[in-house]
Amino acid sequence: MKKLLLLSIFILSIYSCQNDQKAIELTSLLSELGDETQNFTVSSDSVSEIIGKYGTRIVVNSGDLVHENERSAIGEIRLELTELTTKEALVRHNAQTRSGDEWLISGGAYNIQFFDESGAQLRLRDGKSLEVQFPKLVDEPMQLFSGLRNDESVMNWQL
């Protein structure tokens, strides 16, 4: 079944390259096939440990999270974790592993975001950091890259 799905995606991708609208439809279809986003709730007055479905471990000191205006978060905080740990997940989320013209070996792609009770996004206070441990998915040593999307929403990874 998985091979059939991948073959279908490949055929659709070749067909979709003929037309920008078809490329948009393919991207939409791929995003509907699976969503790796997980939601966790932590208190704004505690230190919490979260472990994702695929093994990502995050220690959150909620006091280190603030709104854009530096106001501290209060109440419950929602942590959104996306763990892209397979080639299929990377393709579904249009997060191909390229850095410029070079292909990268991926140890996974991860997105961690925080939101307050109203849905406003939170960020880390200046000078603060998260303690994060990622699962070991490949034997090769990995380096940390940041993914940036261009105007066409194609992901490019930078060391």
Rank of each mutant, 00 (worst) to 15 (best):
A109F: 09
S72V: 06
A109I: 04
E88T: 14
E117M: 09
L33W: 05
Q21N: 06
I77K: 04
F40T: 05
Q133D: 13
L84K: 11
P141E: 10
D116P: 08
L104Y: 00
L90Q: 00
D20N: 11
L137F: 05
D101G: 15
E32W: 12
R78E: 13
L159D: 05
R78H: 14
V91H: 02
S16W: 02
I50E: 00
E152N: 15
P135W: 08
E49Y: 07
I105K: 10
L7R: 07
K128A: 15
S28V: 08
I112G: 08
D151E: 15
Q21C: 02
R71W: 08
E32L: 14
D139M: 05
L65F: 00
I50N: 00
S31H: 15
Y54S: 15
D116Y: 11
L104P: 00
L12W: 10
D101E: 12
H67S: 02
I58E: 00
A120E: 15
V59W: 06
D20R: 13
F115S: 01
K22N: 07
A23H: 07
M155K: 02
T27Y: 14
A120T: 14
G100L: 02
D35G: 09
M142F: 03
R98Y: 03
S48V: 04
I14T: 03
E140V: 08
L137Q: 00
R125F: 00
E88M: 13
